[in-house]
């Protein structure tokens, strides 16, 4: 099939647009594998120097470990709390349901700096600053909207008569939910969990306000960027891009799986 001139122009525009979106990310690859402090074209010599720098530096590793711990904690909290709330919000019939839903997804829209300031003031009073557990709880608030949105969308597509059938056959409400509805929700729980994890793992602003001396990975990167431009950050960023693209891609895959089932039924 031959392309019309208009379509050809649009294709060219699309390619330019995609280059604009992706190109800055790709620039990091030669920088992270180069020898020098600065970007050189073509790269003079390939080396793993900056990657080694990351793995040999205690502060980078500690920051990564803290980010993982906080991220996993926040994921577990938001997944449990969010799934329970989603069940009530989708199935319950009560006044203010819509308002409650908006409230629970509000952290997604609210400018983060407002929440950061609010939590900072509160944590200072409670002496919660510099506390990894408190940081995890704060991250759970930020991760909660993702779980609620993904799980409630999946629940709306679930045929509740299947769960009713289990009830009629003698299962209690909890057992019916766990053995019938939960398996159906699994892909969405994976998707919601992954989104929640990355919401926490990438979080910078709230963490900077409330973490005191604790350094998560984004805070470590931020401190580096404020002081100097060291290609170690490029190496870290390259690894993070791979990890988040894989993780978010997986989340998208699981989310689509629940959606597709909904459309087929």
């Amino acid at each position: 099939m031959r392309m019309s001139p208009a379509r050809l122009a649009l294709t060219v525009y699309f390619v330019i647009g995609v280059i604009f979106l992706i190109f800055p990310l790709i620039m990091l690859v030669p920088l992270s594998f180069g020898e020098s402090q600065f970007l050189q074209f073509p790269p003079q010599k390939l080396s793993w120097k900056w990657y080694a720098e990351f793995f040999n530096d205690d502060s980078w590793l500690r920051a990564t470990l803290l980010s993982l711990r906080v991220g996993i904690g926040a994921t577990i909290i938001s997944l449990v709390v969010g799934t329970l709330a989603a069940v009530a919000l989708v199935r319950g019939q009560f006044v203010g349901r819509g308002l409650l839903m908006s409230l629970m997804v509000a952290p997604l829209i609210l400018p983060t700096v407002i929440l950061a300031l609010a939590l900072y003031i509160l944590f200072l009073r409670w002496r919660w600053v510099d506390n990894a557990l408190a940081l995890t709880a704060a991250h759970a608030v930020i991760a909660l909207p993702y779980v609620i949105l993904v799980v409630s969308t999946a629940l709306k597509g679930f045929d509740i008569t299947i769960e009713r059938a289990a009830r009629i056959l003698g299962a209690g409400p909890v057992r019916a939910f766990v053995s019938v509805t939960l398996p159906y929700l699994m892909p969405s729980l994976f998707a919601g969990g992954l989104l929640a994890f990355f919401a926490s793992f990438d979080e910078l602003i709230v963490t900077m306000f409330v973490s005191g001396g604790l350094e998560t990975l984004p805070v470590r990167i931020w401190n580096d960027l404020k002081l100097r431009l060291d290609p170690t950050v490029a190496a870290v960023a390259c690894m993070l891009i791979v990890v988040s693209v894989a993780g978010m891609g997986l989340a998208e895959y699981f989310r689509q799986r629940n959606l597709r089932r909904y459309h087929n039924s």
């Binding site: 979106l21 992706i22 800055p24 990091l28 970007l39 990438d202 990167i221 931020w222 993070l240």
Partner: peptide
């Protein structure tokens, strides 16, 4: 191709512009 950059954190995408 559109989602790929979207999945990367804002901090890292800002850093790429510094480079």
């Amino acid at each position: 191709l559109i989602l790929l950059p979207f999945w990367t954190s804002i901090l890292i995408r800002t850093y790429t512009w510094m480079v």
